[in-house]
Design a protein around this nucleic acid. Structure first.
Length: 374
RNA sequence: GGUUCCGUGGUGUAGGGGUUAACACGUCUGCCUGUCACGCAGAAGAUCGCGGGUUCAAAUCUCGUCGGAACCG
């Protein structure tokens, strides 16, 4: 079946803020949610049961990467992505659109599709909107994404405009070949920092009637206020009975700002990537566990955190693992960081229930920015 | 006792007469937002064992000295 979004309530003070339910083939989840990223059908260093212990719902994988390795047919024969990676929660596949941004050169992008040089062996690859959807149909994730172009920042208005319109045409082409009754398909709103372009993109994408809508093209180097405006410009024109997904955003404050603007779903590599590089979130801001001051700090990363790492290990120990290059260091910090963001969304949902989201947001941001304890 | 070799940032090394002594690892700091990524950026840290000599100029050549290694008695 298709996913279904059910709006439970809006925060009293702010009609944009939404508490909802996401009904999927693999359970029902309250929104807003944070979705960890497991590009290669694997959240780096973590096992499915550990993700579950963090309170995970949807987990991401990536079409481009799974296409190259092991190939969509392998995943299909395994019984689909969920079975292949043995994750019993919902899965979402990104279309490879982000790889247009991160791997392709502007001259490789044409109306037909995008030419890639494989990052594995350098051979030439060609990905089209149809191909991306067909691969995702086979991967059988719960949610597939339209193939889009995530334009760089800054780009000229002219470029953003033609890129956004091409993304609309690509969305249509992908939708036309889409063929998997157990999978849902999201459209993606582009249009950079220009409200009229976001409006056009949202309006035209919604016309195609997708199962949910994403906001793309953010967190690509633009200033924060511009990013927040991009979000507002897009959600303003999205229907209330479908989920809204802000792609690639996972900084705690950005999540709060996204929720303020009506976002239901977030994903980001940030918690797992910075974990492997020795950084972690705390209520009092981000800390770098490698700092010498933690060498003999025998307290948990975050006193009030309920994650496995904080309940069992000290900063001094985690620091030792990270500085020694032990993989368990990155593992323990990944667990902590993912739990931190998921817990943030839990607290956000609780605050919406109690009509005190604005208050919660302000408290969180004040504590996060005044890192006197660290 | 004799012969030979070696002493250069914390560690291991490079440099064998000519401006701010190089590299790796380590240390310290910052960065990371739909993952090509245990990655990226930067900083601190050595008057080249010590003393004399040669030279316009010595980490570099030379003598002595101290410390270490190998081999021979």
């Amino acid at each position: 079946m298709k996913i279904k979004y059910e709006l439970i309530k809006n925060n009293k003070e702010d009609e944009n803020v939404r508490l909802g339910l996401l009904h999927t083939n693999h359970g029902t989840y309250q929104t807003p949610i944070f979705m960890p990223v497991g590009t290669l059908a694997n959240v780096k260093t973590l096992m499915p049961e550990e993700l579950k212990a963090c309170g995970s719902s949807v987990v991401l994988s990536n079409t481009y990467h799974l296409w190259l390795r092991p190939g969509e047919d392998v995943v299909n024969k395994a019984g689909g992505l969920n079975k292949f990676m043995n994750y019993d929660g919902p899965t979402l596949t990104d279309s490879g659109g982000f790889q247009v941004f991160s791997l392709a050169k502007p001259c490789d992008i044409s109306e037909q599709g995008v030419k890639f040089k494989s990052h594995i062996d350098g051979r030439s690859l060609f990905l089209t909107p149809e191909k991306s959807i067909q691969i995702q149909n086979k991967l059988n994730s719960d949610i597939a994404m339209s193939f889009d172009e995530c334009a760089a920042y800054p780009s000229t208005r002219q470029y953003i405009e033609q890129s956004m319109r091409r993304t609309l045409r690509w969305a249509k082409r992908g939708k036309d070949v889409f063929d998997n009754p157990n999978q849902s398909l999201f459209g993606i709103v582009q249009g950079g920092e220009f409200e009229d372009l976001r409006y056009e993109s949202a309006k035209e994408t919604v016309k195609m009637d997708f199962d949910g809508y994403s906001i793309g093209g953010t967190s690509v180097g633009e200033p924060k206020d511009i990013m927040y405006n991009m979000i507002s410009y897009a959600t303003k024109y999205l229907p209330k009975d479908k989920p809204r997904y802000l792609m690639g955003v996972g900084d705690p404050i950005d999540i709060l700002q996204g929720v303020s603007r009506g976002i239901d779903m977030f994903d980001c590599v940030l918690p797992t990537r910075i974990a492997r590089h020795g950084n972690c979130f705390t209520k009092h801001g981000r800390i770098n566990i490698k700092n010498a001051k933690y060498k003999e700090d025998f307290t948990p990363i975050d006193e009030n955190c309920d994650c496995y790492t904080c309940k069992n290990f000290t900063k001094a120990y985690v620091r030792h693992l990270i500085t020694s290059g032990e993989v368990n260091g990155g593992r323990l910090l990944s667990i902590h960081n993912i739990r931190f963001l998921i817990r943030l969304t839990e607290e956000i949902r609780e605050s919406i229930k109690n009509d005190r989201f604005e208050e919660y947001k302000e408290e969180f941001i004040n504590a996060y920015k005044n890192d006197g304890n660290n």
